[in-house]
Structures are given as structure tokens and as C-alpha cells.
């Protein structure tokens, strides 16, 4: 039962994380470009983006932690998954992608977004560099989410041999 609850929270947090990732990439970034052009960007950068980023990075952390618990206590074990051993390789590939994505959120996206949004001091040149780094890290995560989700759903014991065997 504990594992089911863990997996339930993993999926809830994952939906929140990836949902906000898609919101940033498909809605906010293109919308912000238009909002800057007509002088209405402040509403987004001041009232929406900081709150969305808070939910985004916390959901990322919860998704990874509950995923790690499920990997360790589930059928494969974290060691077999992260060393891509045998039948654990598909979920291990998904776990590696999720781990890279978590790194991107906390190390590349959040610190650089703080500069872009003016939450920390930065020169205009620093802000431009930070915006590009955060953008590419966010786009990398959007790209990785596609195979990550495939391996997340196909890497469970019920499907592994049918899909990869």
C-alpha cells in the first residue's frame, strides 16, 4: 500500500512539474514576447512567473524523491536501474533523464530565472545570458520529457519484456 501511495504522489507531482514545464514552453515564453511588445509583461513576471516557478521546482523535487523511493523499494532497486542492468535498463534510462531534468531545474533554470525576474541583482548583460541559459535548459527538459515519459510508463515490470524483450 505504501508503494502505491508513493507512486500516486510521484504521478501527481510529475503532472504538476511537467504541466508547468509545458506551460512555460508552450504558453508563457511565446506570450511574454508579445506582452513585452505592448508593455504588459510586468503582470506575468511579477505575479505569475515567481509562483509558477515555486510550484515547478518543488514538484520537481517531490517527483524525483518519490520516484527514487519507488525504484529502491519496487522490483528493480536503484542500483540496478541507475547502472542500466538487464530488465532495469528501460526504467533506468527514464530515471537518468528525470535526474538530469531535476539538475536542470535546480542548477540552471531557477538560479538564472531569479536574475531574469529581478529577484537577485544582475546587470543587463548578466540577465541576457541568464535568460538564454534558462531558456535552453527549459527546452532541454521539454525535449527530455518525451523519452522520459515513454520509459517511465514502459519500464515497469508489467511492460518491460513485452516492449523491449
Amino acid at each position: 500500500m505504501e508503494l502505491v501511495i508513493d507512486r500516486w504522489i510521484h504521478v501527481l507531482a510529475g503532472v504538476t512539474w511537467i504541466g508547468l514545464l509545458y506551460y512555460f514552453n508552450f504558453i508563457q515564453v511565446p506570450g511574454l514576447g508579445k506582452a513585452k511588445a505592448d508593455g504588459t509583461a510586468a503582470g506575468i513576471t511579477k505575479h505569475i512567473a515567481p509562483n509558477a516557478l515555486l510550484w515547478f521546482r518543488m514538484a520537481a523535487a517531490v517527483t524525483w524523491l518519490t520516484g527514487a523511493v519507488y525504484l529502491e523499494r519496487g522490483s528493480f532497486g536503484m542500483h540496478a536501474a541507475f547502472t542500466l542492468s538487464g530488465a532495469a535498463a528501460p526504467i533506468g534510462i527514464g530515471a537518468w533523464m528525470g535526474t538530469i531534468m531535476l539538475f536542470n531545474v535546480w542548477v540552471l533554470i531557477w538560479p538564472n530565472q531569479k536574475k531574469v525576474l529581478g529577484l537577485v541583482e544582475a546587470s543587463d548583460e548578466d540577465k541576457a545570458k541568464a535568460a538564454r541559459t534558462a531558456f535552453l535548459a527549459s527546452r532541454t527538459n521539454t525535449m527530455l520529457s518525451i523519452p522520459m515519459l515513454f520509459f517511465m510508463i514502459s519500464g515497469t515490470p508489467a511492460h518491460t519484456m513485452g516492449v523491449f524483450g
Binding site: 538487464g86 525535449m143 523491449f164
Partner: peptide, 30 residues
Amino acid sequence: MNPLDSIAGTIIAGVVLTVVFYYVARALVG
């Protein structure tokens, strides 16, 4: 040009990665 600069390029790159890693996973599962 960086494919990640467009949404379409990002999605296509993700699908290509999925196919590549599918065959990697198949080889690892044996």
C-alpha cells in the same frame, strides 16, 4: 540553428531521442 529554439524542433528532437533510446534499451535488456 538550434532545434531547441522552436517548439516543433524540440518535440521532433524528443521523439528522435525516444526512438534512439528505445533501441539502446532493447540492446541492454537483451
